[in-house]
Design a protein around this nucleic acid. Sequence first.
DNA 1: CGCTAATTTGACCTGGATCAACTACGGTGG
DNA 2: CCACCGTAGTTGATCCAGGTCAAATTAGCG
Lengths: 222, 222
Amino acid sequence: MSSVADPKLLHTLIRKLESIASFSDEESTAIENLPVRVRALNARQDIVRDGDRASQSCLILEGWAYRYKIIDEGKRQIFSFHVAGDIPDLHSLHIPQMDHNLATVTAAVVGFIPHDDLHELTTRFPRIAAVLWRDTLVDAAIFRQWLMSMGRRNAFEHMAHLLCELYLRQEAVGLASEYRCPLPLNQLELADAMGLSNVHVNRTLQDLRGSGMITLSRSTLV
Amino acid sequence: MSSVADPKLLHTLIRKLESIASFSDEESTAIENLPVRVRALNARQDIVRDGDRASQSCLILEGWAYRYKIIDEGKRQIFSFHVAGDIPDLHSLHIPQMDHNLATVTAAVVGFIPHDDLHELTTRFPRIAAVLWRDTLVDAAIFRQWLMSMGRRNAFEHMAHLLCELYLRQEAVGLASEYRCPLPLNQLELADAMGLSNVHVNRTLQDLRGSGMITLSRSTLV
DNA sequence: CGCTAATTTGACCTGGATCAACTACGGTGG
DNA sequence: CCACCGTAGTTGATCCAGGTCAAATTAGCG
């Protein structure tokens, strides 16, 4: 259930980061030597909770995760979905108090990296700091896309955008190709991500299918 | 219209950053010595445009700014509002290509800081890098609040949250107190920020006034 | 005082919500 | 191999928050 430091573990992360900027051997080694505590988790299981004070961040090694927040009487808003290579709560490195939850979508393997080690890494290697910083900025850019979709697009356009995003994100890390990708989300989760009701999501998906844009049955075809 | 390096200029910024972590003299001096090109701008004037490749970031010294994006046939989504001390496009330091516009709300004084100098500053002083990074993470946290409001709150709650945010942000930098603050936004801008129509914003404001929660006439009272 | 932009009001419309069945399907235990 | 059960997906009927359009009314400002 729990082990330590296998260089291969961090390979996904390094590959993702190196697609932005290439590192020196010293830098790569430093990343590889990060201590990672690995855990296998079941589907739909919380990883970090709203209000927690985090002392480590979570690297997704396998499977999907998502971030969400609940307000009174069970209204849930989902903020993002994450696949292998993502560090969904990297922000807790500088803002330890969580203002939302992080949980698995599917069964997943995740690696926890202590903040102390990340702090040391980023102070020693500004280039690595910059790339991680950049990663959180991409996160923010995606939030802006979602805001755009929620505020000024109808359900049909919004869904189309979301599905494209999820495809492209997976394609970028080699988890999808040929316009086909896994989509382990149910309609309730899509609804909470888009600020819609599950019923309307269902109808919107039918529209998309009807217009020949997608096929779905636990995997997509755009 | 355009001048250089007056230590006082960066005082707002330093004060804001020091509310997070205190700096050594060397660090403070390094910030103060950043070259700043100052410009006075009119109200409702673009500062950086969607698609631009930025080579500097913009520090608000006086007045308000906002970020927005337009999609087909004039639908606009506003992503954020900014007051003195904010660097609304700090993200362009690591993602130079703008994916939205930055513009003034009111007449404003802004200072431009070249990315080169910021890069040098952040590689020399990891503590400063961390605080600036943190600032962009707060930005992202506010996006999440907005997502929450757009997705799962009705117009009344959404408006209340937005007004509180704008008050608290100004209070934090000494621009407001006693539950009173300037609010130089018109109803169309509020509408585009909340994903609503201007008509509905008007009615929602009337509700808020009616319920005794606010007074408005170019300044608020919560 | 006159012009323009911003706010307000009214009438009517619609995208998406809500509620309540009902169906399909993958276990799971007998 | 089948009956049962729980979860997820569909469907239909009805409702309402918020949109749209258009016409006042009011504020600012030179």
